[in-house]
Design a binder for these strands. Sequence first.
DNA 1: TAAACTTAGTTAACGGTGTTAAAGTGAGTG
DNA 2: CACTCACTTTAACACCGTTAACTAAGTTTA
Lengths: 197, 197
Amino acid sequence: METIERKPRNREQIRSGILKTAKSIARQEGWQAVSIRKIADAIEYSAPVVYEYFDSKDVLLDEIRSEGFRYLYQEYDRIVNLYRDPEKRLYEISLVQWEFARQQPEIYQVMYNMSGALCTMPIYESESMQAVSRIVCKTIFSFIPKSEESIKRLYFQWWSISHGMIMLAMLLKDEQPLDHSEQIYRESMRRFVRDLR
Amino acid sequence: METIERKPRNREQIRSGILKTAKSIARQEGWQAVSIRKIADAIEYSAPVVYEYFDSKDVLLDEIRSEGFRYLYQEYDRIVNLYRDPEKRLYEISLVQWEFARQQPEIYQVMYNMSGALCTMPIYESESMQAVSRIVCKTIFSFIPKSEESIKRLYFQWWSISHGMIMLAMLLKDEQPLDHSEQIYRESMRRFVRDLR
DNA sequence: TAAACTTAGTTAACGGTGTTAAAGTGAGTG
DNA sequence: CACTCACTTTAACACCGTTAACTAAGTTTA
């Protein structure tokens, strides 16, 4: 009898293998092509094994979404520690957002239920998302010390412009080159930051 | 032998019944719950009948998307004929966009592949969408007569702000009431229009 | 009138999906 | 040897989009 082809892995390795595979399929074929069986095949297990790590496909997607927000938080935090000027901070945070959506579109899609991805877990209850909100709000506050209500308003506006442009840029990327969209994005975000003053 | 329970209907009635049913299911249970079989059940036919009217589910969704853009075009056209002032026109068009997304979210969702809806037909090749683009661009042009390139830029910005806010408002509607979001929307769109001058 | 053809609609199947209960496997232990 | 336990798979359920094959009725033609 032959030795087991499958390499021995611990729980952590298998778990991250599942996540990695899901993202990989999504990137290459779109989220509608991501299935539990396909993931299981790729990690050389049968489908039920996936359920030992994630209670459902929805929970799996929620984890990928959280990964995305955690990554964003990390990057925003890096920016805040890198620059002193609040204007510069917010502008650079905007650019990180664009870069993230460009380089890991499949994660960005699942974060906002775009392009057929559907995670039914409510986004606003996600701690990782709230952490991102807080760091941006804090940045805006250091900028314009107003009431919490006003800051939330400005954050909502910033988020809308940023996300709206990213989403439309992705949607129209075949008729309007991404580089061109990025130029408009930079200009718009710069203007938003400037007008805050 | 008993008479057929099912009422006699012509092709047009059946076709619009399919579209109506799809939207109805989407509204009540979300797009992920819309299936050909469920539609067929609702219109009291078997599943293959649906394929006599739409080549695929994708084509069905594309038709609903087009319906949405045609409706928007109609409304924008009405606004343009109602007001003389270009600023007023663009602002009112913005409000129509909000009202549409609020009253027929399921159509808005399929137009932009939100919330799990997925229509793979490229949106930019849709004539009905291009008609909408043209009427807004024309409105902006009557406002600021610049190069076609500049107008497209401004249109992209207008669209991003509008769509970004609508999308985030829908996403966060459980923690931020829609009326509050609408207030910010109105203010933002008004500001955008004013700053164009 | 009989045969041929058209139309409208159905059933049943194919290969796929998320999910879960049951069965199997093999190594270690009393 | 029998037994347990952890791990993994098989097989099933109810659904999905889609299509080939079929049926029954009505219409046209020879």
